[in-house]
C-alpha cells in the first residue's frame, strides 16, 4: 500500500508540473505585436536562411523568422497549400508543380548557386579514389560496380547511399548522372534524407559514396573531382563552381506566393541585399550579386 500512495503522489506532482509548464509556455508564445514568417523546405538552403534570420532578428526584433527543413518537395508543397510563407528549394520548380499550384502564383528568387558533389568517405579518398567519370558513378548507383577495387580503390564493398526521392539534391544529381531526375538506384544500400543525415552516414563509414551539397564537405567527407570525356579532373572548388566548369551546379531558390506579406518580402530582399549575399558566401555557396 505504501508503494501505491507514493506512486500516486508522484503522478499528481508530475501532472501539476506539466500543467504549470504548459501555461507558462503558452503565455510566452502569445506575446503580441510580433510578426511570424515561416520558411520551410530544402536542407541545402536552410543554413543560409537560418543565419540570415538570426542577423535579421537583430535589425528587426519585432519579426520572428521560423525556419524548418523537410526537403525541396516539401517546401513547394507546403507553400502551395498555404502552410508556409516562403519555400526553399534547391532545384528548379517542375512544370507539374507550376500547374498544380497555378492558382497561388509561384514566384522564385535565386539567392545563390551551389554544386552537388559526389562524395566518398575520407578513407576511400585517401586510398586514391579522388576522381570519377559520370558513367562510373552511374554504374555504382545501378549496382553494376559493387567493389572499390573495380575503379582503382581498395578491396572494399561500396556502401552506396541514396537520398529520398523528393530531395532537390538527389534530383539534380540523378538528372546529370543518370539522365533522369527520378531514376531508381538499384545499387543503393541506404536511403537517407537531409544533408546532415547523409553526412553523418558517410563519416561513420569507411567505404561509402553519396551525394552532398558543396557546403557540407569536410575532412570526413571528401568531394570527388569529375572527369568529363578525356579532360583533366575538375575539382569541386568554389572557383570551378563560379566559372561554371564543375558540371553539377544548381540555383538555390526562395519561392513565394502572389499573396506574399510585406514583412516576408522585406526578408527576401534582405537576403538579396549585399549583407544577405555575404551570408550566402559564408555558408559555402556562390553569391548571385556583388
Amino acid at each position: 500500500m505504501q508503494d501505491h500512495s507514493s506512486t500516486m503522489r508522484y503522478s499528481t506532482v508530475m501532472s501539476r508540473l506539466t500543467l504549470a509548464i504548459f501555461v507558462l509556455v503558452s503565455a510566452a508564445c502569445s506575446q503580441a505585436d510580433t510578426v511570424n514568417i515561416n520558411v520551410s523546405g530544402s536542407s541545402t538552403v536552410l543554413p543560409v536562411v537560418s543565419r540570415a534570420a538570426e542577423q535579421y532578428a537583430q535589425e528587426m526584433p519585432e519579426v520572428r523568422v521560423v525556419v524548418n527543413a523537410g526537403g525541396s518537395g516539401v517546401g513547394v508543397k507546403q507553400l502551395g497549400s498555404g502552410q508556409t510563407d516562403i519555400g526553399m528549394i534547391s532545384r528548379d520548380i517542375t512544370d507539374g508543380e507550376y500547374e498544380q499550384y497555378a492558382d497561388v502564383g509561384l514566384k522564385t528568387y535565386a539567392i545563390g548557386v551551389d554544386a552537388v558533389v559526389p562524395v566518398v568517405s575520407s578513407e576511400i579518398y585517401a586510398a586514391g579514389v579522388t576522381s570519377l567519370t559520370f558513367p562510373q558513378i552511374a554504374s555504382i548507383y545501378r549496382g553494376e560496380v559493387t567493389n572499390w577495387s573495380a575503379i582503382g580503390g581498395p578491396d572494399l564493398e561500396i556502401l552506396v547511399i541514396d537520398k529520398e526521392a523528393s530531395r532537390g539534391t538527389r534530383q539534380v544529381f540523378m538528372s546529370k548522372i543518370m539522365g533522369n531526375k527520378n531514376a531508381t538506384a538499384p545499387g543503393a544500400k541506404l536511403v537517407l534524407g537531409s544533408n546532415n543525415e547523409e553526412q553523418t552516414a558517410l563519416a561513420q563509414s569507411d567505404a561509402a559514396i553519396g551525394m552532398l551539397s558543396h557546403a557540407w564537405l569536410n575532412d570526413d567527407v571528401k568531394g570527388l573531382s569529375i572527369i568529363i570525356a578525356d579532360g583533366a579532373p575538375i575539382e569541386p572548388t568554389l572557383a570551378n563552381i563560379k566559372n561554371g566548369q564543375f558540371p553539377i551546379t544548381r540555383n538555390l531558390l526562395l519561392v513565394s506566393r502572389s499573396d506574399l506579406s510585406a514583412p516576408a518580402q522585406d526578408f527576401i530582399d534582405y537576403i538579396l541585399s549585399p549583407e544577405g549575399q555575404k551570408i550566402v558566401e559564408e555558408s559555402g555557396y556562390i553569391r548571385v550579386s556583388e
Partner: peptide, 9 residues
C-alpha cells in the same frame, strides 16, 4: 515519417 510530408494531399 519520411514520405508523408512530400506527397501531395
Amino acid at each position: 515519417g519520411r514520405e508523408v510530408a512530400e506527397s501531395a494531399f
